[in-house]
Structures are given as C-alpha cells and as structure tokens.
C-alpha cells in the first residue's frame, strides 16, 4: 500500500526515560503500543480515527522482566503472554496467571501481546484481568513529572474501558504479593471455541487451604460486568468452607447477584450466569483435588 496522506509519527524509544519524556510531551496525541495486537486491530477497524502518533514500548527491555522481589513478584508491563506462560516463577507462585496466559489468542498473539497492554486496553474480557484482581496486583504507574505511584488493581478501572492512567503516565509493572504457603490459584474461561477465542465468561480463584478449608478467598470474574470484578459477598460465603463442586451451587444465588452480565454478540446474559456458576464449580473441584493431593 502506498503512503497515507498525513504520515503518522512513530516513536521507538529505547529507554523508559526516553519513553516518559515523549509521553509527557505528546500526551494523548501519541497512543502507547506494545505488541500491537489490539492497537493494530483498531488501526484497521477505524482508519479515520487513529492517533497522530504511536509510542512503541516494545523496545524497552527494562519493562519485559519477571523478577522476584522481597515480598512480591514484579512483572514488567511489556512481558508477553508467551513469557508469562513459560515463567517458572509464575508457575510456582501464580499458576492461575500461567493458565490465563495460555488462553490468550494462540501462539502468534502470545508472542506479541503483553500483560500491560491487556490491562490498559481495559476490555472486561482481558484474559489476565481476573488473575490480577485476585492476586491482588498493585499497578505501578510512572510519569516524568510526578514520579511513580502504586494503584491497587481494584482501583485501576473507573468504568467500562476507563482507567486512572493519566495522559502523561505509563503503566510500567505489576507487583503481585507472594502468596502465603498453601495458596491455591486457578483460572477458568469459556469462549466460543477452545483456542483463539474471546471469553464469554472467565473466573479466577485464589485461596489458602488450611486443612480442608478455604481462607483468604479471592474470586474475580471477567466479561460479566463493565469491568473485571471481585465478588466480595460470594468470597465471604466461601470463607472457611471445604472446597467442593456442590459449594458452587450453594453460593450460586449470591454469585448471580454480584455479576451483571449482558446479552451481546458472543453470548447471552442467561448463559453467562449459568456458566459463571459452572466455572466456579470447575475451580472448586480442581481446588478440592489439589487439596486431596496435598493431604495424601
């Protein structure tokens, strides 16, 4: 294809400092982009409404690390899902995130899509979001002028595709507190087929197993509300219970009060409600099996 009328500027900084300077100068004129798996789709879908410039974060090696810190695992914003899926640190501490990463698109997408991009995009169907919600992650934002701030994941979204990210800030990393011993975490997703699919409903559960009972239960759902949501009342009901698939049906009434799914192209509200309980059943069944294995 020949050249467009007005050439779109494209920044490829090599350091975070450089990137933050461009971000501060361009503000909302330059759209940050990492692997491009969402941004390049928007560029095609709405060619007349694209930004004046793109700010590529792909070349920032410092944002690609997955590192163990004193009390958390730090995941750089542009770590790809392929990286996440292979990371022994995550396999050991956040297996649910590894599972979620494997559910993102297929190989081509996993090699490019980044966890930061997934979160900043803000789609309630973002595969990594429920896991970050239950960890719960701290979102690290940085700007040139105002330095770094840490926002709890639960406070990051303010509405459908709305976040607290300011137009001079970049999301640089996530800090996932190291889970206490005996913690189990799992991720479940139902889409329209087994791979390369957008979720109709997904869920993540993280809890500590003390003997055969659940403690510190965290349960989050995606694609059932304008943003990814935690289910505090359902969590409270699960607290202290022994995991079993029957438990899912026992709490299904509360669960269904806490989610607000809609009918859309990909599914129906009624099905999402049904599957939301089904996914919890799967998670609790798996959790019970893990507990059984640990006890044996």
């Amino acid at each position: 294809m020949a050249r467009s009328l007005a050439e779109i500027r494209f920044y490829t900084p090599k350091t975070l400092e450089e990137a933050l300077a461009i971000r501060a100068a361009e503000r909302s004129d330059a759209m940050p982009m990492a692997g491009g798996t969402d941004v390049m789709v928007w560029r095609r879908a709405a060619p007349d409404e694209g930004p004046a410039a793109y700010l590529s974060l792909w070349g920032l090696r410092e944002l690609k690390q997955i590192t163990k810190r004193q009390s958390c695992i730090e995941i750089g914003a542009t770590a790809t899902f392929a990286q996440l899926a292979r990371s022994p640190l995550l396999r050991e501490n956040f297996p649910a995130l590894v599972e979620a990463a494997r559910h993102v698109g297929a190989a081509q997408i996993q090699n490019r899509a980044t966890i930061g991009g997934n979160v900043v995009n803000g789609s309630p169907a973002g595969d990594s979001l429920p896991v970050l919600a239950v960890a719960p992650a701290m979102v690290v934002l940085t700007s040139k002028g105002r330095g770094t701030r840490r926002v709890p994941f639960g406070a990051f979204y303010t509405g459908y595709r709305q976040t607290v990210l300011e137009d001079d800030e970049l999301l640089v990393s996530f800090e996932l507190p190291l889970p206490p011993p005996g913690t189990w975490s799992g991720f479940e997703k139902v889409g329209s087929r087994r791979a390369q699919t957008i979720s109709k409903v997904m869920a993540a559960l993280q809890a500590r197993l003390d003997g055969d009972t659940l403690h510190g239960v965290a349960l989050a759902y995606g694609s059932v509300a304008p943003t990814v949501i935690r289910l505090p009342r359902t969590e409270a009901l699960l607290e202290g219970c022994s995991p079993s698939e029957r438990l899912a049906d026992d709490v299904s009434g509360t669960l269904n009060q806490e989610i607000a799914p809609i009918d859309d192209l990909r599914s129906t509200a009624a099905y999402r409600r049904f599957a939301a309980v089904g996914l919890l059943r799967r998670l609790l069944r798996r959790c019970a099996a893990a507990q059984g294995r640990a006890a044996a």
Binding site: F10, G35, G36, M40, R44, Y54, A106, N111, R112
Partner: peptide, 29 residues
C-alpha cells in the same frame, strides 16, 4: 483477515511466529 485472527500472514520474527498484519514495521528495526 488483517486482524490477527487467521494466521495466514504468519512469519518468523527473531525466531518466533507472529502475525505480520499486526506488526508496525517500525518495531522490526
């Protein structure tokens, strides 16, 4: 498809398979 769904444009980029329709050329420098 031009939107990263079908893989017909798959190429190897530094040894990894990617969809060429989703890669801005600036990023392959």
């Amino acid at each position: 498809c031009g939107e990263g769904e079908c893989g017909a444009c798959s190429v190897l980029l530094d040894g990894q398979v990617v969809n060429a329709c989703l890669i801005p050329v600036a990023q392959v420098d």
